[in-house]
């Protein structure tokens, strides 16, 4: 069973990794993706990011995404943590851990998990700029393209 959490506060990558591997000797590798808030490179710099989610549906969607990864790669464990609320540039925002017997499924599952998390879990980002203006982040076609790589053939 995957560990899935939506939380306002920070997470500890070391503690989450330790929890995933506690008492186990069958795990050969853990893939890790740690997403952080970018300040951006445009004229306006991002002063803060605000993350909104759909309590209930977001957790259900994350559980399903984790279950799909476990089905496809025979994972030995999996952790998905996504933060909400206000976040400053540089702060960690999302953590994906995928444990498997070997590196290949661990790394592939990690890529799959973040691709699907970005396109199938209900979260919305709003950027607050240093000039006081704000804007909701638009969905990117590149994210849909990345997620479509994992479509299974019938």
């Amino acid at each position: 069973m995957a560990t899935v959490r939506v939380q306002a506060g920070p997470f500890d990558v070391g503690a989450e990794t330790a929890a995933l591997t506690a008492g186990r000797t069958d795990i050969g590798g853990i893939g890790c993706f740690l997403g952080t808030v970018r300040a951006g490179s445009g004229e306006r710099r991002v002063a803060a990011m605000h993350l909104e989610h759909y309590p209930g549906m977001t957790e259900r969607a994350m559980q399903r995404i984790a279950a799909e990864a476990e089905r496809r790669w025979e994972l030995l464990g999996c952790t998905l943590i996504h933060r909400t609320g206000p976040l400053a540039p540089g702060e960690p925002i999302v953590l994906v851990l995928a444990a498997a017997a070997h590196r290949q499924p661990a790394l592939a599952a990690t890529e799959f998990l973040i691709d699907w998390l970005k396109t199938r879990a209900p979260f919305w980002k709003k950027e607050i700029f240093d000039d006081g203006t704000e804007a909701w982040v638009e969905a990117h076609d590149a994210d849909d393209t990345a997620a479509a790589r994992w479509r299974e053939r019938d």
Binding site: L51, H82, V94
Partner: peptide, 10 residues
């Protein structure tokens, strides 16, 4: 029933 823009998490 919920209505929302395309998702932008991660």
């Amino acid at each position: 029933i919920a209505f929302f823009p395309p998702v932008t998490g991660g």
